[in-house]
Design a binder for these strands. Sequence first.
DNA 1: AAAAAAG
Length: 482
Amino acid sequence: MAESAKTEEEKRRAAGDEEPETEEDSTSELMKKIEELSIIPEKKGPIDDPGESEIQAVTSGNTVYEAAVKFEDLDLSKELIKGLYVAMDITRQSKIQAISMHMITTPPYKDLVAQAHNGSGKTTCFVLGMLSRIDPTKEGPQAMCICPTRELAQQNKAVLMRMGKFTAITSMCAIPSDSASYVPMYKRPEVKEHVVFGTPGTIKKLMTAKKLRTCNIKILVFDEADHMLAESGFKDDSERIMRDIRRESGGCQVLLFSATFNETVKAFVSHVVRDGNQIFVKKEELTLEKVKQYKVRCYRDREHPDECLKTKVIKQILDFGRMIGQTIIFVQTREGARNLYKELSKEGWDCTAIQGALNIEHRDKIIKEFKDGLTLVLITTDLLARGFDQEQVNLVVNYDLPVVYESLKRGSPEPDCEVYLHRVGRTGRFGRNGAVFNLLGSREEEAMLEMIEHYFQHSIPKVDNWEDEKNLKKAIQDSGLM
DNA sequence: AAAAAAG
């Protein structure tokens, strides 16, 4: 099943790559594609994913927006339409795209806070929004996107370059660079590119060094906005960047995107974009139907307290996982990532590990190898919990459950349900199948997973007797993989 | 403790 889906995917990809490059040919190819689209599924309108049915939109003021059923309804340039259909191979709009695109691309360009499920195409919304607002004949930044990690900034930039392939729009990443190629801010040239993707620290430094002119910014995006605006360490920088750019640009459009907005953040961001449009999803509706979640109980043995059963379970899961696609294993700490990597690679298991303490060259290399499909198993901290998009990932393993740090200090560990949701969202993207295994090494961890089940009103089945490989295999089969 | 950043 997964096999056939994959080959079909690959076929389409290959076909896309062999697209004739001459202007006439690719345009007629485009027209053909558009024709096909208008006869096939449009009566059904936007993708009717079961998981996407509960999106609620609140528009501000008396601006009337119509849902855009097709991208052609959006008054986009033909270069952008071509980018969507030919370079991106996007055929239909997802629900979040249908609801939000007019809000983003239509005057009076109101601010927007938009929540939608993991893997439902939020990036396409804001990247298309940015591209549509840019005048490529003018030099310098006209759109900016703030991200929580270097990896996400780079990934988003890659999406923009692909979607804007047939335009003259340029982009750059403002993220920390490796020590060898570091250039002090005062020595840098002024940013000439149209779009800047970056992390808060580097963006802020470029702005204060006057190397990043923000007066022509028309659209400012915060990806993973709830995180950027609520988490200490990000909050102050993000707010300052938003305030400065709003002032300098004379009131640019601000877009806040994330899969999660808890009640506290919701109240706060609604204040930030007071006159804006809002799209929210109920938290019970956020779990992905296509992703099957499991718990595996592997408590430490009283007779062998040093033996780590979790590692044993991992190896069993990887036996299957490596046959069907790529796997991401989440751990809580940097040291945990190092240790598990050592443990697995020592015994000849082919895997890599990434965490924030690695040097930048190494980080980039690990990500590239994984995105290229050269490595099948990636161990990571919550560095990759949000936003990381790799369609071949069909297995996620929570070696450790995400914990709210403050609750640890209080002595009663609570799970971080939002991080849990984001981790789960690394698989099952765009309606694909996926499976998540939660390894429970103690009574406390079992209790935490119960709290997660309660939070999402979604019960997670247990895989009994994991020592027998058949049971793990059956779980993977039940999730539609293999 | 993870994420960013520090030059």
